[in-house]
C-alpha cells in the first residue's frame, strides 16, 4: 500500500510554483506565533505542504526549517504528500464506532484498494480518518470534501464513491 504513495511522489515531480508564496506569507511577516495559520494557507493553496514551499516559508518567516516541520508534523491537519481531488474522511468518533464505522472503512478500503492515509494512484481519492466531525446523530458518517454522508451502511458506499468522478 505504501508503494502507491511513493509511486505517486515520483509521478508528481512537476516543479512547484513558488510565486504565490510571498503574497500568502506577507500578512504574517514578523509574527512567528502565526505559523499555524501560515501553514494552513500554504496547504490550502497547494493541497499539501511541499518541501520547497516549506523552505520558502522558513526563509520568509525566519523560522528554522526543523521547527517548522516540528509544528507541521504535530498536527493531523497538515499533510506532507500530495492528496487526491476528493478527500474521504471516515469519522472514527464513538457514536460512529459503535454504529459500525469500522465496517464502512473496510468497504471503502476494499473498493479503492488503499488504506487510510493513502491516495489512489489516479489522484482521485485520498482516504483519511478523522476523530469526530460532530454529526454523531447521523452515525456512521463520512465526509467527501465538504459533503457529509450520514447513516451509512457498507452497501451504500459504492454509490457514494461513484458520484465523485
Amino acid at each position: 500500500m505504501l508503494k502507491s504513495g511513493a509511486a505517486l511522489e515520483t509521478a508528481k515531480m512537476d516543479p512547484i510554483d513558488l510565486s504565490p508564496l510571498d503574497p500568502l506569507v506577507e500578512p504574517y511577516l514578523g509574527k512567528k506565533e502565526m505559523v499555524i495559520p501560515v501553514l494552513q494557507k500554504v496547504q490550502e493553496h497547494y493541497g499539501y505542504l511541499p518541501r520547497p514551499a516549506m523552505e520558502g516559508v522558513s526563509r520568509l518567516m525566519q523560522i528554522p526549517l526543523s521547527r517548522l516541520y516540528g509544528v507541521a508534523t504535530f498536527y493531523a491537519q497538515f499533510k506532507m504528500k500530495p492528496r487526491g481531488r476528493y478527500i474521504i474522511r471516515v469519522c472514527k468518533g464513538t457514536a460512529c464506532h459503535i454504529q459500525g464505522s469500522p465496517k464502512i472503512a473496510e468497504r471503502i478500503e476494499e473498493i479503492l484498494g488503499v488504506q487510510s492515509g493513502v491516495t489512489t494512484d489516479d489522484l482521485r481519492f485520498t482516504l483519511e480518518e478523522v476523530a469526530c466531525i460532530g454529526a454523531c446523530a447521523l452515525a456512521p458518517v463520512i465526509m467527501v470534501n465538504d459533503n457529509p454522508h450520514g447513516r451509512l451502511t457498507p452497501d451504500k458506499v459504492q454509490a457514494i464513491l461513484d458520484s465523485y468522478e
Partner: peptide, 10 residues
C-alpha cells in the same frame, strides 16, 4: 471540541 461523541459547542 475534540471529544468524539460531543457536538454541543459546535
Amino acid at each position: 471540541e475534540g471529544d468524539p461523541g460531543a457536538f454541543m459547542d459546535r
